[in-house]
């Protein structure tokens, strides 16, 4: 559980964008995983785990939409980020860039943000995403490229110097 808790929590944060809701969802996801652990093959565990978490998040989002917002945290404030290194200056630069990326992600549509989350962040391949979303492989590939371009444009709109230099 310690091995996968950060991934599950990250997925939940990206979907619901609220720290408390994400923590609650991650806990629920682990309970479901524990209950159904015998049903899944070892080589398909990570896609299965991410799919289960995604479904829980979507269910929760539907319920949230049916009620008035309580304590949603805008992504501009951002969730707690992983510590990239020990050098304070490098850490600050990396943290600023990731906050920028979070703000840009917040500007994307739900579909594009989901594509970025599954492929670029969680590292699933196109075939796994196509199975998860029940969509043709070609559609997923074009949607993935479109989402990356949209994110790049969104980041550049927030900070035109983002793509400059190394």
């Amino acid at each position: 559980m310690r091995r996968f808790q950060s991934r599950i929590y990250a997925v939940a944060v990206h979907y619901v964008r609220d720290a408390d809701e994400a923590r609650d969802l991650a806990q629920e996801a682990f309970i479901r995983i524990y209950q159904r652990l015998e049903d899944v093959r070892a080589d398909r565990f990570i896609p299965w785990m991410l799919r289960l978490t995604r479904n829980l998040c979507i269910d929760r989002l539907r319920r949230i939409k049916a009620r008035p917002p309580a304590s949603d945290v805008p992504l501009e404030q951002g969730p707690p980020l992983p510590a990239p290194g020990t050098d304070p200056e490098q850490s600050w630069i990396a943290d600023s860039r990731r906050q920028l990326v979070y703000r840009a992600l917040d500007r994307l549509s739900d579909k594009n943000r989901e594509m970025i989350l599954l492929k670029e962040i969680q590292g699933l391949n196109l075939q796994q995403i196509a199975e998860m979303l029940d969509a043709p492989l070609g559609t997923i590939k074009s949607r993935s490229n479109r989402a990356r371009l949209e994110l790049a444009k969104a980041v550049l709109a927030l900070d035109p110097s983002y793509g400059v230099g190394g």
């Binding site: 991934r7 994400a22 979070y102």
Partner: peptide, 26 residues
């Protein structure tokens, strides 16, 4: 600039796969 941003995103996005919940989570 667009290609440069795509290159930077390829570096900045994967670390976002891991976010640590609070210590009481486990």
């Amino acid at each position: 600039a667009l290609v440069g941003a795509l290159r930077h995103l390829a570096v900045d996005l994967p670390p976002l796969a891991h976010l640590q919940p609070d210590p009481r989570f486990v």
